[in-house]
Design a protein around this nucleic acid. Structure first.
Length: 574
DNA sequence: GCCGTTTTCGGCCCGACTGTTTTCAGTCG
């Protein structure tokens, strides 16, 4: 774990879950959930804060400060350990199955002796669940389906988790004496939305010190294989990390080789063979003489194959090799191109940071414009009212000019109802600078219904962006069933942007959909959906998706200068 | 456990949906 905040957050979340499972005070559990979120989203590392400052974090009281101190001293929390002794970890894991909450998870454990996900699957397949009180045939089916959803992401880490781990590992290894280069490769470098393992590459003349440091990392739980060029470990969270150490002369060739994808590598090797060459992780060689033609940098390797350097996010054999050969690689949008964020929250609804803190962090990111888009009233739990929204708008107007030249936009995240309607009438909506509209309910409706509701939302003259259009949660909830070509056509026709939601748990739209939508003429908004100042850094992940879909700066409305974006936010008459 | 121009005690987010039920528990956002 990179920050003490993350460690504390994980322990407090676990404590809240265990309290809930054991039927403890629900308000206490909720309180711990809240402090966990507040701590995870707090920008300063707890390790650098004194207790008094920690007590200032909203939602954190004396009891939590004590537990933070305990984590700092002992690495854990005694109260959590005591509950862990009573409730097998599998019971908590079962709560991750969609449709299974604390009550049923505990009932399954107590009445059926089910205490792992595997037990649960076996029991459901054997039809042993529907005899339990409160369980029936449909519940059993839903649990089996939920297990399927969970299984698709099992053992895979989302982009945010994997990136944090990769940064931690490469920083630690880079500090080892004799380490000349260290970076991550593999699917994480290609910025796939989830990764099954982490590939780390280092350059050194002597690999031994790196291997020793690697297996001694605090996040390592198990060593799978260990040798002079390759060591594989598993983290406590179950993610495999492979470390390969090569000589500095071979670093570029190894980076190409281990970044992949497999299909991209095959294409490159085929190209090499046809030219009388041989490509491996050690370099590009003359097949006849064995002479090393290129190996130190990726650029040299690609150049020796007659190719321009190909950005890692494109290396999927989707035409990038041909484009590199003909000098037609696209100019990709980068994080630096983003001039603003059009989907963010504050503590007025479910964010954990104040408006002022979010604005200050946004300004530090160098944005030219920034939209605050708190939840609208139809998401009842957020308790939004017209008055609260108008008060926020007034506050935003007061703050105009307080954040340099950053333009402050007042927006909202509307809820797209099952019929495609949204929270407010046209008059109220016209008061916003920007409206994101998202699906937050009725995920199970049929394709015709989902398609109609999204198209109707696009046709709303006050809706500028469709937020997280598929409503999927990576590894947790399947996307809604939609006729995407029809929605893409509607978005293009109505001048409605589709969001690339950059929160690692969403990554929505995904790269395939973005590619298809772009072909249909759709524009995109790469948004953080930040609920804390830390999450304002999310767009880097969305840029990965955008690049994988070959998007350039012109495809992304929040890469545009304000005047151009302003015109886009005035939709044409339909 | 946290918090306070309704409060230092007594509240704490609320409604919809699903599947199990015969009046409601569990889950979700």
């Amino acid at each position: 774990m990179a920050r003490l905040n993350d460690q504390v957050q994980a322990l407090l979340e676990e404590y809240a879950d265990l309290l809930t499972i054991t039927g403890g005070d629900a308000f206490r559990a909720r309180s711990y959930e809240k402090s966990a979120r507040a701590i995870g989203g707090w920008p300063t590392d707890l390790a650098d804060m004194d207790p008094k400052a920690i007590l200032e974090i909203p939602g954190v009281g004396k009891s939590t400060v004590g537990k933070i101190d305990e984590v700092r001293r002992t690495g854990t929390i005694d109260a959590v350990e005591k509950l862990r002794a009573k409730i097998p970890p599998g019971v908590r894991a079962m709560m991750k199955v969609p449709g299974l909450g604390p009550k049923r998870a505990l009932a399954l454990h107590q009445d059926l002796g089910v205490s792992t996900i595997d037990d649960l699957r076996a029991a459901a397949q054997a039809g042993r669940l529907h005899d339990l009180p409160g369980f029936g045939g449909r519940t059993e089916e839903n649990i089996l389906h939920g297990l399927e959803v969970l299984h698709q992401a099992a053992g895979r880490a989302d982009l945010g988790t994997a990136t944090a781990l990769a940064e931690e590992v490469t920083a630690a290894l880079s500090a080892v004496p004799g380490c000349l280069r260290c970076t991550w490769a593999g699917s994480l470098r290609r910025m796939r939305e989830t990764v099954g393992d982490l590939d780390v590459l280092a350059a050194a003349h002597d690999s031994a010190p790196l291997m020793e440091a690697f297996v001694a990392l605090p996040s390592v739980a198990e060593v799978i294989v260990s040798g002079p060029t390759k060591t594989s470990v598993r983290t406590g969270a179950g993610l495999q990390i492979d470390l390969r150490v090569v000589s500095p002369e071979a670093f570029g060739a190894a980076l190409v080789y281990f970044t992949g994808s497999k299909a991209h590598n095959i294409k490159l090797r085929t190209l090499a063979v046809r030219a009388g060459l041989k490509l491996s992780e050690y370099g590009l060689f003359d097949a006849g003489t064995g002479e090393n033609l290129a190996s130190a940098t990726e650029e040299e390797v690609y150049a020796a194959l007659g190719l321009a350097w190909i950005p890692p996010t494109l290396r999927e054999d989707r035409g990038e090799v041909e484009a590199a050969a003909s000098g037609e690689l696209p100019v990709l949008v980068t994080e630096r191109d983003l001039r603003g964020d059009l989907h963010t929250h504050t503590d007025l609804t479910d964010g954990v940071a104040s408006l002022e803190d979010m604005l200050a962090t946004a300004k530090a990111r160098g944005y030219a414009y920034y939209a605050v888009t708190d939840h609208a009233p139809d998401l009842v739990m957020q308790r939004m009212t017209d008055e609260k929204m108008l008060a926020q708008r007034a506050r935003l107007q007061e703050l105009a000019g307080h954040y340099g030249r950053m333009r402050l936009l007042h927006g909202t995240e509307l809820n797209i109802g099952p019929d495609g309607s949204v929270d407010w009438d046209a008059e109220f909506l016209s008061g916003f600078d920007v409206c994101v509209a998202s699906v937050h309910s009725h995920f199970g409706a049929d394709r015709a219904t989902q398609t109609r509701r999204l198209i109707r939302a696009c046709e709303n003259p006050h809706v500028h962006v469709i937020g997280h259009p598929s409503a999927r949660r990576v590894g947790r909830r399947a996307p809604i069933d939609v006729d995407w070509p029809a929605v893409f056509a509607a978005a293009a026709r109505t001048g409605t942007a589709l969001e690339i939601n950059a929160a690692p748990g969403r990554m929505d739209l995904n790269d395939d959909h973005v590619r298809a939508a772009r072909t249909a003429g759709v524009r995109f908004s790469i948004d953080s959906d930040a609920h804390s100042t830390v999450q304002l850094a999310n767009p880097r992940f969305g840029v990965g998706t955008a690049q994988r879909a070959w998007l350039g700066p012109d495809d992304v409305i929040n890469a545009w200068p304000w005047q151009k974006l302003k015109r886009f936010l005035t939709k044409p008459d339909l």
